[in-house]
């Protein structure tokens, strides 16, 4: 059964330079238990697409069904309840910076109406799942990017979701950390039977864990199908271009690996540096 079905979804942004048609008649479905990837070059409408699934963005037309239920017609209250079924993780992690790691994971449990004590007990279990129980009392700023994303995954799990949406969840992380996070997502997918939608511009993410993929180009689904099928026999220009990107990514990984072997002792420094870069980027984005 399909957990997510999009049918003829359209979304337009009206801006100063005229309207931007971000999604044009997008139709796709995500099957229960699968890891579904959406890839595209920047500006293809990926983020808009994923935000339409939990209605953080409201499309003008089309149907969005979650486990068979049309969600565009839900009331505010019903939608909030439905959103507890659909967790989301983000490129910039989006943790509450003034809360401890444990209390961040507690947040969805508080929303669900649990008492603080019970919430903390449950949250600790999820922190164990992501391997960060020893950081429970730390604050997000004290963690590396990869660790912050693990906390975000624990927070997502705490709302007992049926679906997890990942919006460029590994784009701010280095290749090794990306790999670890993807492994964790796969574990979550298998152990909790959570369907996952991954939005990314990185081919390595798609090839690493996705079962099926949709290639988004200028707001339209250019190709859709099992990952191997789409990329062994690409029918569109954009899919071929993405294949080229994969090759350059692979090369890049090889170089980084060689470098890391040459200076293993500096890995720690490298990690903290890249974290600072991420933080700098976040500030700039603000």
């Amino acid at each position: 059964m399909a957990v997510i079905e999009l049918e003829q979804v359209n979304k337009t942004y009206s801006g100063g330079n005229g309207d931007v048609h971000a999604l044009k008649n997008v139709s796709l479905s995500v099957e229960e238990g699968e890891i579904f990837g959406v890839i595209g070059l920047s500006g293809a409408g990926k983020s808009t697409l994923v935000r339409c699934i939990n209605l953080l963005e409201r499309p003008e037309s089309g149907q969005i069904r979650i486990e068979g239920r049309e969600i565009r017609s839900l009331s505010e209250r019903e939608l909030r309840l439905e959103r507890q079924n659909i967790a989301m993780i983000f490129q910039q992690f989006n943790l509450l910076m003034q809360r401890t790691v444990l209390d961040n994971v507690c947040f969805p449990l508080e929303i669900a109406g649990l008492r603080k004590k019970e919430a903390r007990k449950q949250a600790l279990v999820y922190l164990k799942t992501v391997g960060l129980e020893d950081k429970a009392k730390a604050y997000p700023v004290q963690l590396s990017g990869g660790q912050q994303q693990r906390v975000a995954i624990a927070r997502a799990l705490a709302s007992h979701p049926r679906i997890i949406l990942c919006d460029e969840a590994t784009s701010a992380l280095d290749p090794q950390t990306t790999k670890n996070i993807l492994e964790l997502l796969r574990k979550v997918n298998r152990e909790y039977h959570i369907s996952i939608v991954i939005i990314t511009h990185e081919m390595r993410v798609i090839t690493e864990i996705c079962d099926r993929v949709a290639v988004l180009h200028h707001g339209k689904v250019a190709e859709i199908g099992p990952v191997e099928e789409v990329f062994t026999n690409p029918k569109t220009k954009v899919a071929r271009r993405l294949l080229l990107i994969r090759e350059s990514e692979a090369l890049e990984d090889e170089i980084t690996e060689n470098e890391e072997q040459a200076e293993t002792s500096h890995t720690k420094e490298h990690e903290s540096k890249s974290l600072r870069v991420i933080e700098g980027g976040a500030h700039a984005a603000n």
Partner: peptide, 23 residues
């Protein structure tokens, strides 16, 4: 307050009151 953090709370199904008081 970071727009992304508010969006994260919304995606978790937080009500307006919760977002004001807890975020």
């Amino acid at each position: 307050v970071d727009r992304g953090v508010i969006e994260a709370a919304q995606s978790l199904g937080a009500s307006h009151t919760t977002i004001v008081c807890k975020v």
